[in-house]
Amino acid sequence: MSDVLVAAEHRRGALRDVTYEAITAGRELADARGGDLHVAVVGGDVDGFAEDVNREGVDAVHAVEDGEEFDHNAYQAAVSTLADRLDVGAVVLPNSVNGLDYAPALGEALGVPIVTDAVGMAYDDGLTVTREMYGSKVETTVDVAGDRFVLTVRGGEWPPAEGVGDAAIEAADVDIPESGARVTGFEEVGGGDVDIADADVLVSVGRGIEEEENLELVEELADALGATLSASRPIVDNGWLPKNRQVGQSGKVVTPDVYIAVGISGAVQHVAGMKGSDTIIAINTDPNAPIFDIADYGIVGDLFDVVPELIDEFA
């Protein structure tokens, strides 16, 4: 009951970093609850993955054989079966695209509440989760009634678990129902004429540009600086620039020497794709925009005033 279960996440033969971060969060929770930490690996190279997730603080690893890739029905069946069998009260999963493809169904199947996208937590008689609302403008603390729940944790908020644990690794037998959702393949997007990940200097444009016609302005800036043009998600969603120009969680992760964010507010999904840049410069009208939290230089101002002046400087 006081035990905690974490499920690993892997894709195309490799464990994803969020797995190790979820293990850290799971260990923190297990300590607070006075329980053991179990980790489930489902599908793929389960033996290899089981060794990999046996990090410091892991008490037991449960390996469930399945197909090669993620299948939400298999994950749900494996985790709910293990949660029942081990009498685990708390399940911790990555708040990833695949995590969110089964965690809510798992909460429903187990009849326990779910809280997603945790950025922090405290446990004292019960779980209190810190999470953002209103597009990262505020943080909230959310109390969860009862001591059973499913929690998904945001990537990059907990450090990855390290070291080598002395967990018992065992194969777990789970009945996996035939799935009504079948993965038929994968597609890489974002190929094409240019790889923004190779650029030393990026001029990156966001929603603040307002109209497609205005893109000329940032193109001109990129030309003047000898930089490559990239964009945040809304620009690509609108079809104004191709997908290969998108910086962020679902686009490219970039680490240029200089990243100039023009009219980009800095949503967490965008920041995940560019926070490793050496120097970050942000131009935005909203002084509270989260992009300024990670910027090295900031200008609070209208890009339509500042950018033409900047182009003149380099003309």
Binding site: A145, Y297, G301, D305, P308
Partner: peptide
């Protein structure tokens, strides 16, 4: 099963150098 117990503005973690002035001045400094 959920209750929001607190809401607050996250503390800014910014240590950015904010460039002041009008558009021309700030573009010059940048």
């Amino acid at each position: 099963a959920l209750t929001i117990t607190e809401m607050y503005e996250p503390e800014s973690e910014s240590d950015a150098e904010m460039i002041e002035g009008d558009a021309g001045e700030s573009a010059g400094r940048l």
